[in-house]
Nucleic acid binder design. Structure first.
Length: 453
DNA sequence: TTTTGAGTTGTTCGA
DNA sequence: GTCGAACAACTCAAA
């Protein structure tokens, strides 16, 4: 009797261990993706398009045998299992809080059908690693050590003789996906699907890895792997990438492995603290004073703060659904330390607009910047947007690319239009705050919180 | 149990 | 222009 293979953050066919488990009793499997309104509806058009395009690519990958259903998985999955006479539903473990709750309900609703979990979207499943005394890790470096020591299996191969059974899709579901994939006004996005992902990866190994250690911080260069949108939905698995990196002599390989370790660390932290999606991880930071100024927030969102590197980043996000990591830190620091907004306001905006928005990495990246998360960070770490811009975008190429009002300026002036005679000639907005002053205010608030409790 | 070394990504100031 | 110190103490992880 066939098994159901339910894909969630596994939109690929290669290196998919749960296929092996599913086929271990019977070679025949039904592969399904469920369009769950709970996740689908709130997504913006760009995020919908990215998922939709990857689903269309996935359908081809599975020889047009991908079954797409719409609705609450608690109803949809048991119904499909009954329909095809499945004895098992096979998944990889979902570790994000919402998905984990959903899975518990689906499992309970399955009754006689076996629920089988194999693997997860991570090299090491969140929650598995413990400190010597059995505690959870709260600091990255020891986690990273333990993670490397623990290791991970090599890429999985597809079971021989796998037979994909066809099961009827909801016709309406594919048309919704088709429309979302081609909606009006979409930005240029990466090529969807695992073939494109692996092609990009090969390109990065060839061209980017050598200088990754330094170029990764340069938003003006093509120095990053661009794997994050694919990792988001499991179009590639980190294990696949790690297999290439651990056999590599490239100097940047070590650094890239560390970046993957960060992704796994934050997933581990979220696993232990699901409440941290909405709350400060450090309870003692709850006393921080925040502002909530809709006009300033809107200026930040639209890239109209008057600080070139901040505006370039926010506009890149709006235009492409992606932002360079260094600039994510700069813009996050600006919202939390210069505008004194709560990190959650920024995290929510990123979640809505980033095609790679990963709940764990996004949430804890923001909390790290805000000083409320892991890393008992020096509270005085406040990014100076002008200094950061000069350091990481030395020729102002990135700024001038995303902020056309500054395109006519020389590099020096583009970084500091307030010092250039023609700085505002093309309508670039004046600075909405004075960084030096806001920095002092931010530091004072952190100090006040310390004295306050 | 106690102790010790360490902790992603920064900035400013003064010598 | 360069460079090192200062910016707080605190918590974590492991010996």
């Amino acid at each position: 009797m066939p098994g159901v293979v339910w894909l969630r953050r596994d939109l690929r066919r290669s290196d998919l261990p749960l296929l092996q488990t599913a086929a271990s009793h019977d070679d025949r499997v039904v592969v399904v993706f469920v369009l769950d309104p709970v996740f689908w509806e709130p997504a913006g058009p760009v995020r919908k398009a990215w998922l939709a395009r990857n689903l269309l690519a996935l359908r081809e990958t599975y020889d047009d045998r991908l079954c797409l259903r719409m609705g609450d998985p608690v109803k949809v999955i048991p119904k499909l299992a009954a329909e095809v006479g499945a004895v098992s539903v096979n998944v990889s473990t979902e570790t994000e809080p919402g998905g984990a709750r959903r899975d518990a309900l689906v499992k309970a609703a399955l009754a006689d059908v076996a629920w089988v979990e194999t693997g997860s979207p991570y090299a090491v499943t969140p929650g598995r690693l413990r400190t010597a005394t059995g505690g959870e890790f709260k600091v990255f470096t020891p986690f990273g050590r333990a993670w490397r020591q623990h290791g991970w299996p090599g890429p999985a191969t597809e079971p021989a003789g796998l037979e994909l059974l066809a099961a009827a899709s909801d016709a309406e579901a594919w048309s919704i996906v088709g429309r979302a994939a081609q909606a009006d006004g979409l930005p240029t996005m990466p090529e969807p699907g695992e073939t494109a992902a692996l092609t990009r990866w090969a390109h990065f190994l060839e061209q980017g890895l050598d200088n990754y250690g330094t170029d990764r911080d340069r938003p003006d260069l093509d120095g990053t792997s661009l794997m994050s949108p694919y990792l988001k939905f499991g179009v590639v698995h980190p294990r696949t990438l790690l297999a290439d990196l651990t056999h590599s002599d490239h100097s940047g390989a070590e650094r890239f492995i560390t970046e993957l370790a960060w992704r796994e660390f934050y997933a581990d932290v979220l696993h232990h603290h699901p409440e941290s999606l909405e709350q400060d991880l450090r309870a003692d930071m709850a006393g921080l004073a925040y502002d909530s100024d809709p006009e300033r927030l809107a200026a930040w969102q639209q890239g109209l703060t008057g600080y070139p590197i901040v505006d370039a980043g926010m506009r890149q996000l709006l235009a492409t659904g992606w932002m360079h990591n260094r600039v994510r830190m700069i813009t996050a620091s600006f919202l939390t330390k210069d505008l004194h907004h709560w990190w959650r306001d920024g995290a929510r905006w990123f979640e809505q607009h980033l095609i790679d928005a990963d709940l764990a990495s996004n949430t804890h990246g923001w909390q790290w910047t805000a000083g409320t998360g892991t890393d008992a960070a020096p509270y005085f770490r406040v990014f100076n947007p002008t200094l950061q811009g000069r350091k990481f975008d030395p020729h102002a190429d990135y700024i001038r690319r995303w902020v056309p009002e500054l395109a006519h300026l020389d590099p020096e002036s583009a970084h500091e239009p307030w010092r250039a005679p023609a700085g505002y000639a093309q309508g670039y907005p004046e600075r909405i705050v004075d960084h030096a002053q806001e920095r002092k205010i931010a530091l004072a608030r952190y100090q006040a919180r310390r004295l306050g409790d």
